[in-house]
Structure formats: C-alpha cells, structure tokens
Nucleic acid binder design. Structure first.
Lengths: 146, 146
DNA sequence: TTTTTTTAGTTTCATTTAGAAACTTATATT
DNA sequence: AATATAAGTTTCTAAATGAAACTAAAAAAA
C-alpha cells in the first residue's frame, strides 16, 4: 500500500486528480462541510455506505496531506474527531462546480425537490454561497466541545 | 466490464464523482479543451501517458454519456475524430477550480513559470477565462476539416 | 503492386485496488 | 462484571488498472 501521492505530470488538473481523483475522498470532505460530521461512524452513516476500510484509508491520506486534522476526545476518550483545515475547505469550490454540473446534466436522477433552489442559489451567488458555508463551518469548529 | 454508470446516491457531488471520479476521464476533456486534441494518438502523447486500454475505455464511456461525439474521417478514413459536445464543455468550470486549487496548494510541484500568470487570469476573471476558452473551442470545431 | 507504416484500437496477463464481512482493542455504559 | 460502542484492522474475493504484445484496416512508400 502506497502512502505518498505520485504526481504524473505538472499539469494542475492532473495534479488535483492525483490527489482527489477517486470516488471517496471528496465525499468525506462533503460530509464535513455540508453535514458538519466529525466522527468515523458519522461518515459511515452516509447514503453511499463507504466501507470502513476505505474510510480509514482516505481519512489517513487526508490527514497526511493536511486537508483535515485529527483530535482525540477529552470528554470521551474513545471518540476521534476529524476537522477540516484550510486546505480541505479550499476543495469546496470544486465540489460546488460538481454539484452545478450534475444537477444540470443528471437532473432526472437527483431528487427534484432539493435540486431546484439549491442550484439556483449556487449559480446566482456562487461566491456568497461558498463564503457562507465556510464561515458556518469555522463557527461550528470554534464552538465544538471535544 | 460495466458499461452503465451506477449512481450511489442522489447527492450531486457523489453523482459527479460516479461519472468523472477517476484519474483519466477529465484528462481527455482537458486535452480537448486546452489542447484542441481530437485523435486517439494525440491523447496518447500527453505527459501522463495514458495506456491505450484506458484511453479506449474512457473515450467509449464519454461518448455513451454524451460528453463527446465520434466522427470517422472523410479525407483520411483511418482517422477517428473525437469532439466535445455541450455536456463535455460544461465540465470545464470543475477543471478550472481544480487548477486553482492545486496551483495554490501544490505550487512547489508545478512548474513556477506557467503557474504564475495562468492562475492570476483564472482567479481575477474566472468567468471570462472560461467563456473565452469555450468560444475558442467552438470556433476550432466549426473550422475543423475532417 | 507489393511492402511498409500508420491509426485506432484489442487481447493477455500480472499487479493493484476495491469492497464485503468478520474480527479486534480500548473505552464506556448498564 | 457483563454488555455495548467507537474506531479501526484483517481477511478474502472480485474488479479495475496498466504494461506489453498483438491485430485489422487503410494509407504511403518502394
């Protein structure tokens, strides 16, 4: 098992794909940003049912790359909290573009209900939407009692 | 080998990952948009050296999904031209965000030279940058003699 | 016209990665 | 003391990747 990222070229798109180009990595960050999830078993509850082996593997990689940090609970010593760092938050614009793309082109497959206005907000005030969610996350992180 | 995309959930981010969440798919689209590449062997020349099996597999998938179209050459009957359709062009904003992300966070790895001003243009006039490249591609496609 | 080259793939096979499921270890709760 | 919970790890099978050799049709060269 490899533990360092291999860069295939100096292309910025390829470089991003070398890091986040798989089916699971971004879903963890999605759950952190949109769902304020922090615990291993919270990530497991997501509708995509990430296998625990994959989850452990990707959390480790995300930590090594400085996307997230890991904190052992003080109150409950069995809990391990994963929190977003700046680098992790900076993947958010990529995910927003992904959301805009798939709700435009794969609309049928996504639930009509939540797609309609969510997409409108993202498109009409993309930067504002991003900023607000980032601000919210930071507040959540500040107030979190571990 | 599977030939239909399986959607794991109705999350718009997950849905995009189900389609473009791998190390090769977007690189083909990158070469089409930025490099105006159209032929099988042109894609093979890219610095990431995509294996021909992967390339054939991904081109087929991209065609099935309506991201690209395939045209047999008139002039040279042995050439097969791959061209971007609207759906393929619409992945461009995702790639731009990827480029902004990796040139910000993995600067050391990318060549200093081309990173500096390319990133400035993308950030300061993101929408303009996107529109121009899309316009350029459309012009290229219109004028292409097959 | 025969030979060689080019283009666009396909096939084969070894290696790597993914994923399901059962298991483990430390801590917490009853 | 017994049971449950959280966060993983291990094991094993299936699927995807990738290197390399191969193929078929068309074009160019000899």
């Amino acid at each position: 098992m490899k533990n360092t990222v291999e860069f295939r070229s100096i292309c910025p798109v390829a470089t991003s794909l070398d890091i986040i180009g798989d089916k699971w990595t971004l879903l963890i960050l999605r759950d952190m940003i949109w769902g304020h999830k922090t615990l291993f078993n919270e990530f497991q509850q997501s509708p995509e049912s990430m296998p625990s082996k994959m989850l452990a593997n990707r959390l480790k990689k995300l930590e090594e790359l400085g996307f997230v940090s890991k904190r052992k609970g003080n109150l409950n010593k069995k809990s391990v909290y994963y929190l977003l760092e700046k680098r992790g938050l900076d993947t958010f614009p990529i995910m927003v573009e992904m959301a805009i793309f798939s709700s435009k082109h794969f609309f049928d497959h996504l639930g009509t209900t939540y797609t309609k206005e969510a997409r409108t907000t993202m498109k009409t005030d993309r930067q504002g939407y991003i900023s607000e969610l980032v601000t919210n996350y930071k507040k959540f992180k500040r107030n979190l009692v571990i």
